[in-house]
Design a protein around this nucleic acid. Structure first.
Lengths: 145, 145
DNA sequence: GACGAAAATGAGAATCATTCCTACTCTATC
DNA sequence: GATAGAGTAGGAATGATTCTCATTTTCGTC
């Protein structure tokens, strides 16, 4: 499954003439096994410092621009990244207001259907061109309770 | 309505022995007429620089701690503040992925009911203690289309 | 296999939002 | 009208992120 993701990323980057370098591969692999969005610091940690921070940020930007990663703006001004939805599937988040950690959350299909309908309706009723929706449940994670 | 909000804030602060100084009043008034969360920079602008930046940040923190303001973590590591829900009512947001602006959004009651149910269910089924939910619709605002 | 152009990298400086620190100023109260 | 605690101003410090630029790697081509 992870190598499957890698193959898709490889394809996507090739299509856009963006090279899949070792640092980029490492970041994708790291996020592919994560259970939620990760900050640059967390990824750096995961990669055991094998990539300089400045390069890591650049890598994240490149992958975001290529549509491989999606940013998530969370608590305390830290941006966390995760695989884009076409790679990871649509999902939502549980956010701990205490420590800022973020976990993925599956959501009932009927709620999902309503959200989609809502988003769809918006485009037609307002000047706003809705692309996507983000649902986040805030609270305290098991560790912080 | 605005003075109504002010009276409520006054009451709340008095209950907690926190003074409603002119800077604090100005911030609340500014947010009471805003149509969405505002960043420190935007509020500063609104107040025409009448409050030093450091004081403004301190004021925002004090009001947040007093439960008068709620933070919103949005695009590009900027925190935006809005009146807490007990003052402004429950609502959701339209977020422009282009310019980062945020507008308030009313939401159909049946969607809202399902969200509440979802949040309620979570607490019992996982280790996560859910307090609240945040729904945001991403897209491009009228100005950026 | 060597070459030049384009892409990518590394290291550190720079930036931006935010927080912290410290000395000064109010304001309620005695 | 003295005093303590709350609040403020202003600038230094911090932390995440971005930028710069000199160096290295990679790719297609010869």
């Amino acid at each position: 499954m992870q190598s499957h993701v890698l193959r898709q990323v490889e394809q996507r980057l090739r299509d856009r003439s963006v090279r899949l370098t070792s640092a980029r591969r490492a970041v994708v692999e790291s996020l592919a096994v994560a259970d939620g969005p990760r900050s640059a610091a967390e990824i750096l940690d995961d990669l055991d410092g094998g990539v300089p921070l400045s390069s890591l940020y650049r890598t994240l930007t490149v992958l975001e621009d290529a549509g491989v990663l999606a940013p998530h703006h969370g608590v305390r001004g830290v941006t966390r990244y995760e695989l884009a939805e076409w790679l990871a599937g649509h999902h939502h988040h549980l956010i701990c207001t205490e420590c800022g950690s973020v976990e993925d959350l599956p959501i009932p299909t009927d709620v999902e259907r309503q959200l989609r309908a809502l988003v769809g309706a918006l485009t037609t009723t307002s000047g706003f061109a809705a692309d996507d929706h983000v649902l986040e449940i805030e609270g305290r994670c098991a560790r912080c309770r």
